[in-house]
């Protein structure tokens, strides 16, 4: 088993949580198994595929590569916290409109990597976009429409400039 319960206090999607978790629990296990935030996907548990990418304090982090306790005191955003109730985030809207989504399994992670990128760099070059999502494997659509959708979203977020 994964040992004694430890106290954990963090914010997830804007909501504060006071939790008790086993020390060895991964952040992705906390999100999916305990909190039922199953939008975050598990592809490999090796930090290799990026399907479990979330934002911690605005940075893209693979939630299988950190313990839940390492998020203590931090702000975690998952795919469930990206849209503003019914209004989708421009990244999400661009991915839908531009036809970037196929099977969708990598999509939540892809959105979280793009979100972290555009928060830091509102006008990225194509190569900067490629670098930001290089940790997110896709299996069906060849990345072209994802890269273009992020460019479209960036432009939209800059007010069309």
């Amino acid at each position: 088993m994964k040992g004694e319960l430890k106290e954990l206090s963090l914010t997830i999607n804007g909501k504060p949580y006071e939790l008790k978790v086993k020390a060895m629990t991964l952040l992705v296990e906390l999100l999916r198994n305990e909190l039922k935030l199953t939008g975050t996907k598990v592809g490999c548990l090796d930090s290799a595929c990026g399907a479990c990418t979330v934002n911690i304090d605005g940075k893209a982090v693979r939630s299988c590569s950190v313990l839940a306790l390492q998020a203590n005191g931090r702000k975690v955003t998952t795919i469930e916290g990206v849209s503003d109730s019914d209004k989708l985030h421009p990244i999400q809207q661009a991915m839908i409109d531009h036809g970037a989504i196929e099977c969708g399994f990598c999509t939540p992670g892809m959105v979280m990597s793009a979100k972290a990128l555009l928060a830091e760099n509102p006008n990225p070059t194509r190569d900067e976009i490629r670098e930001a999502i290089q940790g997110n494997l896709c299996a069906d659509e060849g990345y072209v429409k994802y890269i273009e959708a992020i460019e479209i979203a960036a432009k939209e977020m800059r007010g069309g400039k």
Binding site: I79, E80, V82, S83, I96, G104, P108
Partner: peptide
């Protein structure tokens, strides 16, 4: 199905 996929 794109909306369901992009929102998790």
């Amino acid at each position: 199905d794109a909306r369901a996929k992009v929102t998790g």
